[in-house]
Design a protein around this nucleic acid. Sequence first.
DNA 1: CGAGTGCTTGATGGCAATCAAACACCGTGG
DNA 2: CCACGGTGTTTGATTGCCATCAAGCACTCG
Lengths: 240, 240
Amino acid sequence: MTASEIEAVESLVVEQRHLKRHDIIRAQGEPVQEVYLLAEGWAASFLDVVTGSRQLVRVHLPGDMLGTPSVVLATAAETLVALSRATVDVVPLSAYSKLFMSAPRIAVGMFLTAQKERILLMDRLTSIGRTNAAQRLAAFLLNIHERLGIAGFQGPTFQLPLSQDELADVLGITPVHTNRTLSQLARAGLIRRHGKSITLLDIDGLRSFGAVPLRRFERLPQWQLAPGGDYSPHAGTMVR
Amino acid sequence: MTASEIEAVESLVVEQRHLKRHDIIRAQGEPVQEVYLLAEGWAASFLDVVTGSRQLVRVHLPGDMLGTPSVVLATAAETLVALSRATVDVVPLSAYSKLFMSAPRIAVGMFLTAQKERILLMDRLTSIGRTNAAQRLAAFLLNIHERLGIAGFQGPTFQLPLSQDELADVLGITPVHTNRTLSQLARAGLIRRHGKSITLLDIDGLRSFGAVPLRRFERLPQWQLAPGGDYSPHAGTMVR
DNA sequence: CGAGTGCTTGATGGCAATCAAACACCGTGG
DNA sequence: CCACGGTGTTTGATTGCCATCAAGCACTCG
C-alpha cells in the first residue's frame, strides 16, 4: 500500500495486538468482521487442506493488509498467522468498507492493490504449477528480497524467519525436500546460509534460474483522480 | 459480476471482436490500454514460462471481465486467448477507470469481484501445490460445473471445450498424464466422457475426493451503499 | 486423400514423497 | 550445572507419482 493509504487505514484502528511466533490472528472459518494491518514483524496467510497439509498462499511484511480477500465471504477462507513476533492493527470491516465508499482516492488504491495481489498470485501459481522445487525456491527468495528492498533494507543478506516446514508449505513440497533444495542452491553457488540468514550470491543468476518475470507495478495516468480528491463529475457515467 | 455491473460496463464498449478458437485477444507484454468483457464463448488467461511451458491461471465464461489484473502494469502479465468461438467487448482502460471513479456502486462491485478472484486463485494455488493430479482435475471440473450452473445450465453433463493439452496447462501436469488422469476418474466411476462432453456422476464424491472447499460468496451488509447510489457523507473519513 | 491435430497407450526415467534416524539447538526444570 | 523434552535441521534408503520418449490411432479439413 502507499503511505497515504496506510495513514488512512491507521485512523480506523480500534485495537493493537502483540503476537508471538505461531499465534493465530484469525482462523479459517471464523466470521469475517475485521481486517488487519500488519504493523511489525512477519505474518502469513494459509489454507488448510482436509488431507492434513496446508498451503501458505502469501507471506506478509509490515505495511500489508491481512484478511482482505475474505471480505466477500461470511466465514474466512484463510488463516492468518504470525511468523515472528509481530504487531497487527485491528480494523473493523464496517469502518474499512465505509472508508472505501467515502474516500475515492483510497478506494482506487485499495482496488489497485487487490489487482496487484492477483498478479502476484498468478505468478506463484505459475511457479508452483510449472517449475521444479529449486526454481520455486529461487523465485520465492527473490520475491522476499525485493520486497525487503522496497521496505528499505539494502544488501544481498536478510533474515528469513521461516522454518523449513513453513518454507515447504510456501513452495508446495515436503520439509525434507526443502532442506535438500536449500543445499542444492547453496552448492550451486546461488545462495549462502547461516542459520536463518540468507545471502543471495547471484541475483541475476537466481532470476534466470527461477524463471522469475520482472514486474514493474505502476499507477497508470488513467487512475489519477481529478484534483481535490473528490469524484470527478461525469454525468452519464453514474449508475442508477 | 452482477447484472448491474455488466450493464454499466457494456455502456463503455467501443468495439466488439468475434474470435475463433486459439485467437489471441491480448498478448503478454503488450501495453495495457484496454480491458475486455467476455460476451460469448470460453476464454482463458495464461502466463508463459521462459522454459517453454505455460500455466492457464483462469478459465473464463461469459460475463467475466478479462485483463483486469494488468491494470496495475504498463505491459500485460497475462495472455488472453479464446478457447472456443467467442465474442469480446473491448473497453478502453480510461473509460473503465473513469467508471470506477465516478460510480461508487460499481466501484464496490469491482473491488469485491477482485477479492473474489483472489480467493479463487488461493484455492487453485492450494489445489496445485498440495493435491495430486486426479484431485486437481476433480476440483477443476467441479468449479466449471458450478459456474455453468450459476450461468443457468442444469444437470450433471456439460461440454468442455478444452483440449487435453490445455487442460494440462490448467492442472500443471503434462498432456499425457492428463489423459491418464481422465481415464482414472472415469474408471473410478466419478465421471463419464463422450468426446468433449463430461458428466459428473458423483458430485459429492468428486468434492470430497478433490478436497474442494465450499465457497459461499456473499455481499456482506457492510458493503451496502446508502440509498441513492451516492457517496454517503462521512465527514472526517475523507482523506486529503 | 494426405497432412495436421488431438487422443490413447506403453516403456522408461527422474524428481520429489515417504519412512527412518541421527544431530543441533534452546529454554526449562531438577 | 546438566539432564530433558521439544523443535528444527540434516542425511540416507526406498517408493511412487508424474515426466519424458515413443508410437499407433481417430478425426478433421483443405
